[in-house]
Design a protein around this nucleic acid. Structure first.
Lengths: 337, 337
DNA sequence: TTGTAAGCGTTATCAT
DNA sequence: ATGATAACGCTTACAA
């Protein structure tokens, strides 16, 4: 069962050497048109398929790239994966996806798994638990091309693709301010993620630009190590229990935004009558949500595409690239009526 | 840059033969404890990592499985992928995901791509455009293990895992009937998909059980070949233009359910004041949607897990499996207040 | 217990 | 234009 045809089989059947067959199959000019024709026809007839594994062993590359994200079931990442796949597929690369579920251990394990399976490069968005990135520096130092997207590590010198999180956060916060809200809270994820830092900066900049004094009690971190909902609920309850209850929340993340809405729904607190919400989210289902929530859309598809292009460039570069680029793509403030 | 350590390097450094090193590394008994110790220590020291490609070439397997779905950005599939990944990861298999975007051509191309990259087996959910499955039968005949999930092909004799679509559809339709709706339309995808056929059957059975005469004009197919929204919009407009306008819709699909809600939102038709909707959907964001929509949840995660278990069983079976199982998992009717 | 050699499928190098 | 051979990294008879 499933005995694949090899070059050797063709050679034997046609009374040729394997090298001749190989040449015929690969269209070199050092072959007679006649032989080539015979080989190609016979190959087609018996359904010859080249064995990519043999090729990989020979050429020391696998024509596959590894992707490390926290969750596939997250609209931002699933859209980014679409972008990654669209480029990879066109260029003949396979995409191997792995999920960290926001766990550091799982990230280390996945990265090692992928590296040991000889992917030609890695597309990484860090888990929210990750602070130590030596599992990646190690591989990067050994020459494995790595491109970060979304949640990047500044410690590694390589290409990075992110959204303009700071500007997006600024715009969203400013939108809340201009809509008349004064006490704007900020719900965000793990404090050491690059996206959290950038978004917090944008939020603070907007407050400052409008002369609103920042209130530390208004900023809540949800590191989400598997209990996102509970963390979100606690944070929101704490916000609602404050003497000066916030009148709006700027939420920094896809899952966090929907999680936040769930909490409000379960608490039976009307939104936005009592409170306005603006959050980073790429879910188009959110458009259907009636009490308006303003969302900051990231160009997820384009980020995935660009990161992949950069990675393939690194992989296929003959000489090491000297200049590493940090590409920042603009976000889109999606305001519902 | 990135010159991986091989068994040969270790052998040379330690003055041993490659076979001895190989044996030490792989824990056979035909090796002295002393040699083993030396080899293991040195291997660890210089960071030896076995080359899985060489192994694949030797053992004629790649320890990777291919997954063919229509879209990753679909809550049903992203949850199923979670299930697939959870099992595959535990068993040391890689998961290579490819998307058809509901295109037959893309499906053929992806399947060939995966097969030629020597995956050890395939997990397939057919595209909505697919009627001819010879690209799969061909591979299956040659011995490639294939397990279908969700959208299955009855023409191929292999394991299949599906949700109880007929029962789910029956329950949802009956729920609408019991809620007092009489003129229940059915919005579904391509008419030749197994899920469409099963769901249509459940819908018709529920009508019959409650002595409601089926109205052919109430059944709308959306083959969605890339223009899902437009197709959905047309279908709904046609339904609304009927002399006897339906008062409820049973929708058969994740994307279709949210698409349907979008259309209503854009048409400014209140839901469910004018019309009730019940649909297959696994999106938890839908829970937030206020005008209630009843959703039929599929055990996507479990379906993914089960399909993967079956596939790995096929892959690792020494002797061909004779009995092929069609597993049917129950759905869950999720009724919102 | 250890070494030698062949083989997995392919291509590149050198002969012829 | 074609063939023989070695090599990619690893495992496994078979020999020693």
């Amino acid at each position: 069962m499933f005995e694949p045809v090899t070059i050797k089989d063709i050679a034997k059947a046609l009374g040729l050497s394997t090298s001749t067959v190989s040449r015929a199959l690969r269209d070199t000019h050092e072959i007679s048109a006649a032989t080539k024709k015979v080989v190609l026809e016979y190959a087609k007839e018996i359904g010859y398929q080249p064995n990519p594994i043999a090729l990989s062993l020979k050429e020391r590359r696998s024509k596959s790239i590894g992707v490390v994200v926290s969750e596939v079931a997250n609209s931002y990442f699933s859209q980014a994966i679409n972008g990654i796949e669209s480029i990879a597929y066109d260029r003949g690369y396979h995409v191997i996806i792995s999920q960290t579920h926001e766990s550091f251990e799982r990230e280390v394990s996945n990265v090692q798994h992928l590296a040991s399976r000889s992917v030609d490069g890695l597309l990484v968005s860090l888990s929210s638990q990750t602070t130590d990135i030596s599992h990646l520096t190690h591989l990067h130092d050994r020459g494995l091309p790595i491109v970060f997207f979304d949640r990047v590590a500044d410690e590694i010198d390589t290409h990075k693709v992110i959204a303009n999180n700071q500007q997006g956060a600024f715009d969203a916060t400013e939108h809340l301010i201009k809509s008349g809200f004064k006490r704007i809270a900020h719900l965000t994820s793990s404090s050491h993620l690059s996206i959290s830092i950038e978004r917090l900066a944008g939020y603070e900049a907007a407050l400052k630009a409008h002369n609103i004094k920042p209130n530390p009690a208004y900023v809540k971190f949800c590191p989400h190590g598997g209990m996102l909902y509970e963390e979100t609920e606690t944070a929101i309850k704490e916000l609602l229990a404050l003497p000066e209850k916030p009148d709006a929340i700027f939420v920094a993340g896809d899952r966090l935004s929907t999680g936040c809405l769930s909490v409000f729904k379960n608490l039976n607190v009307a939104v936005p009558k009592d409170m306005a919400i603006a959050g980073f989210s790429n879910s188009d289902v959110l458009d259907l949500f009636n009490p308006s929530i303003t969302s900051i859309r990231q160009p997820a598809f384009e980020i995935g595409q660009l990161a992949t292009q950069m990675l393939l460039q690194l992989i296929e570069a003959k000489y090491p690239v000297v200049e590493f680029e940090k590409k920042i793509l603009e976000t889109d403030l999606f305001i519902r009526n």
